[in-house]
């Protein structure tokens, strides 16, 4: 079953258009939403949460999000890049107001997260470091029995150990409670560690929507000594590098013998798909 289904999500701003984004998140999967700054990741998340008025259809566990807004938000947890709200209030006060909205709020679970993250509820939000704010936000999102977690760059601002810890928590949640996670990130190592599927956005358009392994196995990274050599192949996002040119080649395409090929990692796939998209748009 799909925990989240997004169909033709469209939002038009004067300077930016989110163009008919469609993807699904299967129950128990972790979906990574990736793309460069301004690609539309946060707009997609805001559209799902109905923070913006966008057109398109959002379904959470089969229920239409616009018609059943209250019910679907009960089973969703949201964590932004950091807790940027109510800087002068104590965490205790914020949690008290927040928990009231969730009948399935688990105070023991919440306290365990705070203990694990080393956060005191007596502190004010402004007294937390950026990393602590992310952790507080995550602790709130994870403590009300959510079946679908939506996180906007949850690992930004976290140190490597905390990121590792965060990834472990996600994996445990998926393994033990079959929770579905959609999270946007720039940190590709977190994706490789946790994500099952990837949704890749560029300039408001969806460039890829596939299982991570399938995406990684779809392309090879080809190194060319000259641009002429590259033009003989179906290269994607060709760009000059220190000692020649580099681009992606679909795995099913034949590669000339004189071209060296390596496995494409997620960073190189992003870079070259992005470049190809820019080129196509400027044409």
């Amino acid at each position: 079953m799909n925990a989240l289904s997004v169909r033709d999500l469209t939002k038009i701003y004067p300077q930016f258009t989110l163009d008919k984004i469609s993807f699904c998140a299967k129950e128990g999967h972790i979906v990574g939403l990736i793309g460069r700054n301004g690609a539309g990741k946060s707009t997609v998340i805001k559209g799902i949460l109905r923070l913006i008025s966008a057109s398109g259809e959002i379904k959470i566990f089969g229920r239409d999000a616009s018609r059943h807004e209250y019910e679907v938000k009960q089973i969703m947890g949201y964590a932004g890049g950091g807790f940027r709200y109510y800087p002068f209030k104590t965490l205790f006060r914020v949690r008290k107001a927040y928990a009231r909205f969730y009948p399935l709020w688990d105070q023991i679970k919440y306290e365990n997260y705070l203990l694990r993250f080393g956060i005191s509820e007596k502190k004010r939000v402004r007294d937390l470091s950026e990393g602590m704010k992310v952790k507080f936000s995550v602790a709130l999102a994870l403590s009300h029995g959510a079946k679908l977690l939506i996180m906007d760059e949850p690992t930004s601002g976290l140190d490597p150990l905390s990121r590792e810890e965060f990834c472990d928590i996600l994996l445990n949640l998926v393994r033990e409670e079959r929770i579905t996670v959609l999270f946007s990130t720039h940190i590709t190592s977190d994706l490789l560690r946790t994500a099952d599927d990837i949704v890749y956005l560029s300039r408001g358009k969806m460039l890829a929507n596939a299982p991570l392994r399938e995406l990684l196995s779809s392309y090879s990274l080809a190194h060319f000594s000259s641009a002429d050599q590259a033009l003989k192949t179906k290269v994607i996002g060709l760009k000059p590098v220190k000692d020649g040119f580099e681009g992606l080649i679909p795995r099913k395409e034949p590669v000339p013998d004189d071209v060296s090929v390596t496995d494409a990692d997620i960073d190189s796939i992003m870079i070259h798909l992005e470049r190809e998209n820019c080129r196509a748009e400027s044409d």
Binding site: L51, E69, Y70, Y86, Y98, F101
Partner: peptide, 8 residues
Amino acid sequence: PFTCALPV
């Protein structure tokens, strides 16, 4: 934004 992300 905080309030609108709550189940309301």
